[in-house]
Design a protein around this nucleic acid. Structure first.
Length: 303
DNA sequence: AACGGGCGCAACCGCCCAGCC
DNA sequence: TGGCTGGGCGGTTGCGCCCGT
């Protein structure tokens, strides 16, 4: 393409990192901190590409890295988050303290992808395909990653930084206008809420609930700090499919709206969740909080 | 013991986006 | 406003270990 490589590849080491290189990188970052990856190798005296250094640090050398032994809880959370977010490994990793996107991606490709695929289509169990071989297996993993999982209900965030969702306590909650609000915006982007502009992403179920909302204290700011996580899209996404491990394509679910009929979360539901789960805290730092949110959606749907 | 396939994981690649000038 | 750069992300590849034959 018309872009220069991030660094000259001539004379640079490639492949596996040696213990000596790891030591140099670790000590340099401890002394100077992260950042300026492009210049880091030269300054640290490493014959590596800056991106390579960054990757090595983030995925392997960082002191807070948790490696291996992914627990059942983490596994379940990964599955749920993947269902919700799709292949947004960095987002998923952000909800699993100490886990890296690379690790989760690998774990998905090698374990969970197969599991979920098996869940969807038991006849396509691993080993069922006799035309085995590395390429075939890899291709299977790719399919599981890119297209094998149901993506129609995945929240696509398109790298929109939507770090704060501010609900104006004095803003009148307008009756839901399906035509107008079916999509967050024309280009599908999620924009930060402000006090004066965008309408609340959370819509009242009815005028009565609207009244209830006004009778209750309603003042919260959800600092998701989830970066790319768009609350409005999350709330308008198809929760009946998002929650749980329901990977079936069972269309008989009476609650399941069509893709162009987003679920509507009432103020009460969200308020209840946010108050009971201390939404003012950073949700991103607490994976269980998000998981409980998913659970909450499940409970609500069961009603 | 030798060989080959399967598998897991670290690392690389190419693209995209935000921020800066 | 547009170009450039740094940083981040998801997809892909290659290597080495393990295990069955």
């Amino acid at each position: 393409m018309g872009r220069n490589p991030c660094c000259s590849k001539e004379g640079l080491n490639r492949g596996a990192w040696t213990a000596h290189e790891d030591k140099i990188l670790t000590e340099y970052i401890k002394a100077h901190g992260e950042g300026s990856w492009r210049n880091l190798p030269k300054r640290a005296g490493l014959k590596r590409c800056g991106k390579s250094c960054r990757l090595r640090w983030l995925n392997y050398l960082r002191p807070d890295i948790k490696r291996g032994n992914i627990s059942a809880d983490e596994e379940e959370l990964i599955i749920r988050l993947h269902k919700l977010l799709g292949n947004r490994w960095s987002l998923i990793a952000g909800r699993l303290p100490g886990r890296t996107d690379n690790e989760i991606k690998n774990y998905w490709n090698t374990n969970l992808g197969k599991k979920v695929q098996h869940h969807q289509n038991p006849s396509a169990a691993p080993g069922h395909n006799k035309s085995n071989g590395r390429v075939t297996r890899k291709r299977e993993a790719q399919l599981a990653t890119s297209a094998g999982t149901p993506s129609s209900h995945v929240v696509r965030t398109r790298a929109i930084r939507c770090s704060k969702v501010f609900i104006n306590p004095h803003q009148k909650i307008e009756p839901f206008d399906r035509n107008r609000e079916a999509k967050p915006s024309i280009d599908g982007e999620c924009r930060p809420m402000t006090q004066t502009s965008a309408p609340s992403p959370i819509k009242a179920l009815s005028e009565n609930e609207d009244q209830n909302v006004h009778n209750k204290p309603f003042d919260f700011m959800v600092d998701f700090n989830m970066g790319e996580f768009c609350l409005s899209e999350l709330l308008n996404s198809d929760f009946s499919d998002l929650v749980g491990l329901n990977y079936s394509n069972d269309s008989s679910n009476a609650i399941s709206p069509s893709s162009d009929q987003p679920l509507i979360f009432s103020e009460e539901i969200l308020q209840d969740w946010t108050s009971s789960h201390h939404a003012q805290q950073n949700v991103a730092s607490n994976p269980h909080s998000l998981a409980s949110f998913l659970d909450y959606g499940e409970e609500w749907l069961a009603e």
